[in-house]
C-alpha cells in the first residue's frame, strides 16, 4: 500500500514538469505586456523599459524559465504584480473561500445526483426517468456564466430572497473566528448562528451554479451503472433470499454501482476547479478563481503559473485518493 502510494506520487512528477513548462510558455505567448500593465497605459517608454529589465523580462525566454524553475524548486512561486503580494500570501488568504465553494458544490451535486440516478434507474422509462434525463441534459449544457447571471437575476434582483452576490458574508456581520477558513464550518464550530445563516445565504447560489454540470453527469452515470448492476445475478440472489426491494437497491446494488460513479467524481474535480474560476468571478466570490481571472486580465504570470500547477497537484492527489477508496469499496482491489 505505502509502496503503491509512493510509486503513484513519483509517476506524477514528470506530469508536473510538463505542466510547468507548458504554462510557462503559454502565458508568455499570450498577448499583453506585463510591464505596460504595471506602469500604466500612459507611462513613458523608458519607464516601461526599466520595469521590464527589473522583472527580468528582457532576458531570453530560456533564462527566464531557468530562473522561474529554480525559484519554484525553492518553494517560491513569485510575486503577483497586480497585488504586490507574494503568490503564496494571496493564495493563503483566498484558498479557503474556493475550497468552501468547491466542497459545497460537490456536496450538493452528490446529494441530488445520487438519489436522482437511483430513482431514474429503478423507475426506468417512467416519467421520473424522463424528467431527470431532461434536467440532466439542461444541467450539462447550460453555460455557467448564463446560469449564474440567471440565478442572481431571479433570486436577488427579482425576488430578493438572497443577498447581493458580493463576497462570502454581508458587510456588518463579522466573519466567524477562523479555524478551518471555511465560514460555514467555522461559524458552526464557534456557535455563531448569525454568521452561519448569512454565509449560507451567500454560498448557496454560487454553489448551486457550480454544481449543476457535475450533478448532471453524476446523475447519468449513477443511472447507467445502477441499471447495469440491477441486471446482475447477485441482485436476483438477494431478491431470492427474500430481501426487501429497498435493501436490494440501497445495499446490494448501490454498493456496487457507486464504484464507477466515484471515478467520475474524481475526474469532475478538474471541471470544478475550472468552473470555480468563472463562478467566483460572477458572484464576486473572494476565492482563488476571481484572483486568477484578474491575473489573466493583467498578464500577471506568477499567479497563473502557480494556479495551474497547484490545480494539477490537487487534481492528481484527489484522483489518487479516489483510487485508494476503490480498495475500501471493492474488496477485489488490492494495492501492492
Amino acid at each position: 500500500m505505502a509502496g503503491y502510494i509512493m510509486r503513484r506520487l513519483l509517476y506524477m512528477i514528470p506530469g508536473f514538469i510538463g505542466i510547468i513548462l507548458i504554462t510557462f510558455v503559454l502565458s508568455r505567448v499570450l498577448p499583453g505586456d506585463p510591464a505596460v500593465m504595471i506602469a500604466g497605459e500612459q507611462a513613458p517608454p523608458d519607464v516601461v523599459a526599466k520595469i521590464r529589465v527589473d522583472l527580468g523580462l528582457d532576458q531570453p525566454i530560456y533564462i527566464q524559465f531557468m530562473d522561474y524553475a529554480k525559484k519554484l524548486f525553492q518553494g517560491d512561486f513569485g510575486i503577483a504584480w497586480h497585488t504586490g503580494h507574494t503568490v503564496l500570501q494571496d493564495f493563503a488568504s483566498r484558498f479557503p473561500a474556493t475550497i468552501e465553494l468547491t466542497l459545497s458544490s460537490i456536496f450538493i451535486a452528490i446529494l441530488v445526483a445520487i438519489p436522482v440516478g437511483i430513482i431514474a434507474a429503478v423507475k426506468k422509462e417512467s416519467i421520473l426517468d424522463h424528467i431527470s434525463r431532461i434536467f440532466s441534459l439542461i444541467g450539462a449544457c447550460v453555460p455557467l456564466f448564463w446560469l449564474g447571471l440567471m440565478l442572481i437575476f431571479l433570486f436577488y434582483s427579482k425576488w430578493d430572497i438572497l443577498p447581493a452576490p458580493m463576497g462570502r458574508i454581508s458587510e456588518g456581520i463579522n466573519p466567524p473566528t477562523s479555524i478551518t477558513g471555511l465560514y460555514l464550518l467555522d461559524s458552526l464550530l464557534s456557535g455563531d448562528m448569525i454568521a452561519f445563516k448569512d454565509s449560507l445565504m451567500h454560498l448557496i447560489l454560487p454553489a448551486i451554479c457550480l454544481s449543476t454540470g457535475t450533478m448532471a453527469i453524476i446523475a447519468r452515470m449513477m443511472r447507467s451503472s445502477m441499471l447495469e448492476v440491477i441486471g446482475q445475478d447477485y441482485i436476483r440472489t438477494a431478491r431470492a433470499k427474500g430481501m426487501r426491494e429497498s435493501q436490494v437497491i440501497m445495499k446490494h446494488a448501490l454498493s456496487n454501482a457507486f464504484i464507477p460513479t466515484l471515478t467520475l467524481l474524481g475526474l469532475q474535480f478538474g471541471f470544478l476547479i475550472g468552473g470555480a474560476v468563472i463562478t467566483e468571478t460572477i458572484f464576486s466570490w473572494p476565492g482563488v478563481g476571481g484572483y486568477i481571472t484578474d491575473s489573466i486580465l493583467s498578464t500577471d504570470y506568477a499567479p497563473i503559473q502557480a494556479f495551474t500547477l497547484i490545480s494539477a497537484i490537487v487534481f492528481s492527489l484527489v484522483n489518487l485518493i479516489v483510487d485508494l477508496l476503490y480498495g475500501v469499496l471493492d474488496p477485489r482491489i488490492r494495492y501492492e
Binding site: Q232, Y234, T237, A238, H252, S255, N256, L329, P331
Partner: peptide, 12 residues
C-alpha cells in the same frame, strides 16, 4: 442458480 461466479455479491 447456474452461475456461482456471479451469484454472490462481490463487495460483501
Amino acid at each position: 442458480f447456474q452461475e456461482p461466479m456471479t451469484s454472490l455479491n462481490p463487495v460483501f
